[in-house]
């Protein structure tokens, strides 16, 4: 096994062309997988030292977050938290305080877990992922990255360099909630992210709802968002939201939760997250 610290993105991409190469950012998934024997990479490519990968920078009114920025660093960035509280709270739910010092939003995405807490709010936020590979850079909507449990759409030699959270209009807010049987240190049994933009009168103008842990990948539920548009989150709208979420669920039955449970709870979480996002956007609940 080899451990490499590339100095340039091109060098990183070329290292990643090798057999059984894996990207190391925070390492909170990779090292655990190696220890359990689930993965035995030949080359570990540590991308933390590439230029810009540990930066949060402003871009067109939004935020570009380097792939090696930790959850703790995101939490400490007041402007980012103010603009995208739901995205940040999703990332901050990963692991524990100690894990937050290492874990990254990009790593959480690239691990490909359907239950990744960092992903649904990014989908609701319409985040754009910047991918670097042997052929240079390309941008890709975040929802197109995960393709199934443990699988992502990146090609050989490619890695995520940063993620762009777009600029926020006035009266916007997002929120993420997940269900675990404990209070921390657990894997989501269901998760829901809601991103809202309100009109001046408090009516929902735009709404995006994404669910996690209830299908092979985290997913956008368009009908769920549509159920909120034009409403002020009155009970029928919230019920329609929950129904749309339940209809979109295709969960597995396993030790963490039954199909019935995950489906029901996804709707409940979406309702609750919508209320939080609404208040954050300045709406009066």
């Amino acid at each position: 096994m080899r451990y490499a610290i590339p100095k340039t993105a091109a060098e990183a991409a070329s290292l990643l062309m090798e057999e059984a190469a894996r990207v190391l950012a925070g390492g909170t998934d990779l090292l655990v997988q190696m220890k359990s024997g689930a993965r035995s990479p030949e080359v570990i490519v540590d991308i933390k030292h590439l230029p810009g990968l540990r930066d949060i920078s402003r871009e067109d009114g939004g935020f570009r977050i380097g792939a090696a920025v930790s959850g703790a660093e995101m939490q400490e960035h007041a402007d980012l938290v103010a603009a995208w509280p739901g995205v940040v709270e999703g990332v901050n739910l990963i692991g524990s305080t100690q894990i937050q010092g290492r874990a990254t939003m990009a790593g959480n995405l690239c691990n490909g877990s359907p239950a990744a807490d960092g992903v649904p709010a990014q989908i609701a936020a319409q985040a754009v992922v910047r991918i670097v590979g042997p052929k240079g850079e390309r941008d890709c909507p975040v929802a197109e990255i995960p393709t199934g449990p443990g699988k992502i759409s990146l090609g050989r030699g490619e890695f995520v360099a940063s993620i762009l959270l777009p600029a926020r209009p006035e009266r916007s807010g997002d929120a993420y909630l997940r269900f675990i049987p404990r209070t921390e240190m657990d894997i989501a049994v269901a998760g829901a992210a809601v991103n809202l933009v309100l009109a001046a009168d408090g009516t929902v103008d735009q709404a995006r709802v994404a669910l996690g842990a209830v299908a092979p990948t985290a997913m956008l539920v368009e009908e769920a968002g549509a159920a909120l548009v034009g409403t002020k989150l009155e009970q029928p709208a919230l019920d329609a939201l929950a129904k749309a979420c339940e209809a979109a669920c295709k969960p597995i039955d396993d030790k963490r939760g039954t199909v019935e449970f995950r489906t029901h709870v996804a709707g409940v979480l979406a309702r609750r997250a919508a209320r939080i996002a609404y208040v954050r956007a300045g709406g009066r609940a």
Binding site: P181, R182, T183, E184, M185, D186, I187, D254, K255, R256
Partner: peptide
Amino acid sequence: LQNPGFLDYRIPVASD
């Protein structure tokens, strides 16, 4: 055994 680890064998954590 489906849950031979502390992730899915859920002992209460301090905050529980």
